[in-house]
Protein backbone atom coordinates (compact mmCIF):
# COMPACT_ATOMS: atom_id res chain seq x y z
CA UNK A 1 0.00 0.00 0.00
CA UNK A 2 1.31 3.41 -0.87
CA UNK A 3 -1.07 5.22 1.48
CA UNK A 4 -2.63 3.86 4.64
CA UNK A 5 -4.71 6.13 6.90
CA UNK A 6 -5.98 4.72 10.18
CA UNK A 7 -8.52 6.58 12.23
CA UNK A 8 -7.25 9.97 11.16
CA UNK A 9 -8.85 13.01 12.76
CA UNK A 10 -8.04 16.67 12.36
CA UNK A 11 -9.32 19.49 14.55
CA UNK A 12 -8.77 23.17 14.17
CA UNK A 13 -8.71 25.22 17.33
CA UNK A 14 -10.54 28.53 17.12
CA UNK A 15 -10.10 30.11 20.49
CA UNK A 16 -11.27 27.38 22.84
CA UNK A 17 -13.62 25.97 20.23
CA UNK A 18 -12.58 22.73 18.58
CA UNK A 19 -13.60 22.66 14.91
CA UNK A 20 -13.45 19.13 13.48
CA UNK A 21 -12.38 18.95 9.83
CA UNK A 22 -11.75 15.20 9.62
CA UNK A 23 -13.42 12.58 11.82
CA UNK A 24 -11.78 9.16 11.99
CA UNK A 25 -10.80 8.58 8.40
CA UNK A 26 -9.79 5.11 7.21
CA UNK A 27 -8.34 5.03 3.72
CA UNK A 28 -6.01 2.83 1.71
CA UNK A 29 -4.64 3.76 -1.68
CA UNK A 30 -2.50 1.28 -3.58
CA UNK A 31 0.45 2.07 -5.79
CA UNK A 32 -0.85 2.88 -9.27
CA UNK A 33 -4.33 3.95 -8.20
CA UNK A 34 -6.08 7.11 -9.46
CA UNK A 35 -8.51 8.43 -6.86
CA UNK A 36 -10.93 11.33 -7.14
CA UNK A 37 -12.24 12.91 -3.93
CA UNK A 38 -15.60 14.63 -4.13
CA UNK A 39 -17.86 16.24 -1.59
CA UNK A 40 -19.59 19.42 -0.59
CA UNK A 41 -17.66 22.54 0.21
CA UNK A 42 -16.27 22.35 3.72
CA UNK A 43 -16.45 18.58 3.85
CA UNK A 44 -12.71 18.30 4.49
CA UNK A 45 -11.32 17.39 1.06
CA UNK A 46 -8.49 19.88 1.09
CA UNK A 47 -7.71 19.08 4.69
CA UNK A 48 -7.38 15.41 3.76
CA UNK A 49 -5.21 16.17 0.75
CA UNK A 50 -2.90 18.38 2.82
CA UNK A 51 -2.48 15.55 5.31
CA UNK A 52 -1.71 13.11 2.50
CA UNK A 53 0.80 15.65 1.20
CA UNK A 54 2.57 15.85 4.56
CA UNK A 55 1.93 19.59 4.65
CA UNK A 56 0.05 19.10 7.88
CA UNK A 57 0.00 16.60 10.73
CA UNK A 58 -3.14 14.81 11.91
CA UNK A 59 -4.51 15.57 15.37
CA UNK A 60 -5.10 11.86 15.89
CA UNK A 61 -4.45 8.66 14.06
CA UNK A 62 -1.75 7.07 12.06
CA UNK A 63 -0.58 7.79 8.50
CA UNK A 64 1.78 5.42 6.70
CA UNK A 65 3.20 6.64 3.40
CA UNK A 66 5.16 4.04 1.46
CA UNK A 67 5.29 1.84 4.61
CA UNK A 68 6.71 4.70 6.70
CA UNK A 69 4.90 6.21 9.67
CA UNK A 70 4.92 9.94 8.97
CA UNK A 71 2.58 11.54 11.48
CA UNK A 72 5.40 11.83 14.03
CA UNK A 73 8.18 13.05 11.73
CA UNK A 74 9.75 16.44 12.30
CA UNK A 75 9.44 19.35 9.88
CA UNK A 76 12.74 18.75 8.06
CA UNK A 77 12.01 15.06 7.55
CA UNK A 78 8.55 15.95 6.20
CA UNK A 79 10.11 18.47 3.84
CA UNK A 80 12.48 15.83 2.49
CA UNK A 81 9.55 13.44 2.12
CA UNK A 82 7.51 15.98 0.17
CA UNK A 83 10.49 16.68 -2.00
CA UNK A 84 11.09 13.05 -2.99
CA UNK A 85 7.75 11.34 -2.88
CA UNK A 86 5.03 13.88 -3.56
CA UNK A 87 4.22 16.21 -6.41
CA UNK A 88 1.62 18.95 -5.89
CA UNK A 89 -0.75 20.42 -8.46
CA UNK A 90 -2.83 23.40 -7.36
CA UNK A 91 -6.01 25.00 -8.59
CA UNK A 92 -4.24 28.34 -9.08
CA UNK A 93 -1.04 26.76 -10.48
CA UNK A 94 1.22 28.56 -7.99
CA UNK A 95 3.98 29.27 -10.47
CA UNK A 96 6.66 31.78 -9.50
CA UNK A 97 6.00 35.07 -11.26
CA UNK A 98 8.69 36.55 -13.51
CA UNK A 99 10.37 33.18 -13.58
CA UNK A 100 10.72 31.15 -16.75
CA UNK A 101 8.85 27.88 -17.28
CA UNK A 102 12.15 26.00 -17.10
CA UNK A 103 13.12 27.52 -13.80
CA UNK A 104 9.69 26.91 -12.36
CA UNK A 105 9.98 23.23 -13.25
CA UNK A 106 13.49 23.04 -11.77
CA UNK A 107 12.39 24.46 -8.42
CA UNK A 108 11.93 21.21 -6.42
CA UNK A 109 15.36 19.97 -7.52
CA UNK A 110 17.03 22.92 -5.76
CA UNK A 111 16.00 21.24 -2.54
CA UNK A 112 17.16 17.77 -3.56
CA UNK A 113 20.78 17.20 -2.59
CA UNK A 114 23.17 16.12 -5.31
CA UNK A 115 21.71 17.73 -8.41
CA UNK A 116 23.95 19.72 -10.71
CA UNK A 117 22.62 22.68 -12.66
CA UNK A 118 23.01 20.70 -15.89
CA UNK A 119 20.97 17.77 -14.58
CA UNK A 120 18.23 20.08 -13.36
CA UNK A 121 18.06 21.78 -16.71
CA UNK A 122 18.06 18.46 -18.59
CA UNK A 123 15.14 17.10 -16.59
CA UNK A 124 13.10 20.28 -16.94
CA UNK A 125 13.64 20.37 -20.70
CA UNK A 126 12.71 16.71 -20.97
CA UNK A 127 9.45 17.16 -19.07
CA UNK A 128 8.34 20.38 -20.72
CA UNK A 129 9.02 18.84 -24.12
CA UNK A 130 6.99 15.84 -23.18
CA UNK A 131 4.09 18.02 -22.01
CA UNK A 132 4.05 19.84 -25.33
CA UNK A 133 5.72 23.08 -24.16
CA UNK A 134 8.84 22.74 -26.24
CA UNK A 135 8.69 26.32 -27.53
CA UNK A 136 7.64 27.84 -24.19
CA UNK A 137 10.80 27.19 -22.14
CA UNK A 138 11.61 30.79 -21.48
CA UNK A 139 8.11 32.14 -21.16
CA UNK A 140 7.00 33.67 -17.91
CA UNK A 141 3.74 32.37 -16.39
CA UNK A 142 1.84 35.51 -17.43
CA UNK A 143 2.82 34.78 -21.01
CA UNK A 144 1.15 31.35 -20.91
CA UNK A 145 -2.49 30.25 -21.12
CA UNK A 146 -4.14 28.66 -18.09
CA UNK A 147 -3.82 25.17 -19.55
CA UNK A 148 -0.16 25.75 -20.36
CA UNK A 149 0.48 27.09 -16.88
CA UNK A 150 -1.10 24.02 -15.36
CA UNK A 151 1.07 21.80 -17.55
CA UNK A 152 4.17 23.66 -16.34
CA UNK A 153 2.93 23.04 -12.79
CA UNK A 154 2.46 19.35 -13.57
CA UNK A 155 5.98 19.19 -15.03
CA UNK A 156 7.19 20.71 -11.76
CA UNK A 157 5.26 18.06 -9.80
CA UNK A 158 6.86 15.32 -11.90
CA UNK A 159 10.41 16.62 -12.01
CA UNK A 160 11.64 14.65 -9.00
CA UNK A 161 9.88 11.46 -10.25
CA UNK A 162 7.67 11.06 -7.18
CA UNK A 163 5.41 8.02 -6.84
CA UNK A 164 2.48 10.21 -5.74
CA UNK A 165 0.80 13.25 -7.30
CA UNK A 166 -1.75 15.24 -5.28
CA UNK A 167 -4.01 17.68 -7.09
CA UNK A 168 -6.49 20.03 -5.40
CA UNK A 169 -9.07 21.01 -8.03
CA UNK A 170 -6.50 21.01 -10.85
CA UNK A 171 -9.10 21.94 -13.46
CA UNK A 172 -10.95 24.45 -11.27
CA UNK A 173 -9.50 27.45 -13.12
CA UNK A 174 -9.54 25.93 -16.60
CA UNK A 175 -12.13 25.73 -19.36
CA UNK A 176 -13.45 22.30 -20.22
CA UNK A 177 -11.11 21.72 -23.15
CA UNK A 178 -7.99 22.52 -21.14
CA UNK A 179 -9.48 20.46 -18.29
CA UNK A 180 -9.87 17.48 -20.57
CA UNK A 181 -6.27 17.86 -21.75
CA UNK A 182 -5.04 17.81 -18.16
CA UNK A 183 -7.16 14.73 -17.39
CA UNK A 184 -5.81 12.91 -20.45
CA UNK A 185 -2.34 13.72 -19.18
CA UNK A 186 -3.22 12.39 -15.72
CA UNK A 187 -4.50 9.14 -17.31
CA UNK A 188 -1.19 8.77 -19.16
CA UNK A 189 0.84 9.36 -16.02
CA UNK A 190 -1.33 6.88 -14.16
CA UNK A 191 -0.77 4.33 -16.91
CA UNK A 192 2.98 4.73 -16.26
CA UNK A 193 2.40 3.71 -12.65
CA UNK A 194 2.15 7.07 -10.91
CA UNK A 195 -0.43 7.22 -8.14
CA UNK A 196 -2.79 10.21 -8.34
CA UNK A 197 -5.17 11.63 -5.77
CA UNK A 198 -7.32 14.51 -7.00
CA UNK A 199 -9.99 16.70 -5.41
CA UNK A 200 -12.73 17.86 -7.76
CA UNK A 201 -16.25 19.21 -7.81
CA UNK A 202 -17.00 18.06 -11.33
CA UNK A 203 -18.35 14.53 -11.94
CA UNK A 204 -17.01 14.37 -15.52
CA UNK A 205 -13.53 15.19 -14.22
CA UNK A 206 -13.88 12.60 -11.48
CA UNK A 207 -14.88 10.14 -14.19
CA UNK A 208 -11.26 10.04 -15.39
CA UNK A 209 -10.21 8.48 -12.08
CA UNK A 210 -10.24 4.76 -11.39
CA UNK A 211 -12.41 5.31 -8.33
CA UNK A 212 -14.13 8.15 -6.49
CA UNK A 213 -14.37 8.79 -2.76
CA UNK A 214 -17.21 10.90 -1.42
CA UNK A 215 -16.79 12.96 1.71
CA UNK A 216 -19.26 14.59 4.00
CA UNK A 217 -18.58 16.40 7.27
CA UNK A 218 -15.08 15.03 7.59
CA UNK A 219 -15.86 11.39 6.98
CA UNK A 220 -15.65 9.16 3.93
CA UNK A 221 -19.00 7.72 2.93
Amino acid sequence: MLIRLENISKYYLMGDQKIPALNGIHLEIAQGDFVAIMGASGSGKSTLLNLLGCLDRPSEGCYRLDEQEVSQLNADALAALRNRKIGFVFQNFNLLARTSALENVELPLYYTPGFTAAERRRRAIELLTRLGLKDRFHHYPNQLSGGQQQRVAIARALVNRPPLILADEPTGNLDSRAGTEIMTLFRELNAEGITLVMVTHEPDIAAYARRTIHMRDGVIQ
Binding site: L55, D76, N94
Partner: peptide, 16 residues
Protein backbone atom coordinates in the same frame (compact mmCIF):
# COMPACT_ATOMS: atom_id res chain seq x y z
CA UNK B 1 4.02 34.50 0.94
CA UNK B 2 2.70 32.16 -1.73
CA UNK B 3 6.18 31.62 -3.11
CA UNK B 4 7.28 30.68 0.38
CA UNK B 5 4.34 28.26 0.74
CA UNK B 6 5.18 26.72 -2.60
CA UNK B 7 8.86 26.32 -1.74
CA UNK B 8 7.89 24.64 1.51
CA UNK B 9 5.51 22.32 -0.38
CA UNK B 10 8.17 21.22 -2.85
CA UNK B 11 10.64 20.40 -0.11
CA UNK B 12 12.36 23.53 1.15
CA UNK B 13 13.28 23.29 4.81
CA UNK B 14 12.72 26.25 7.11
CA UNK B 15 16.43 26.91 7.25
CA UNK B 16 16.55 27.03 3.43
Amino acid sequence: TREIGLRLAVGARRRD
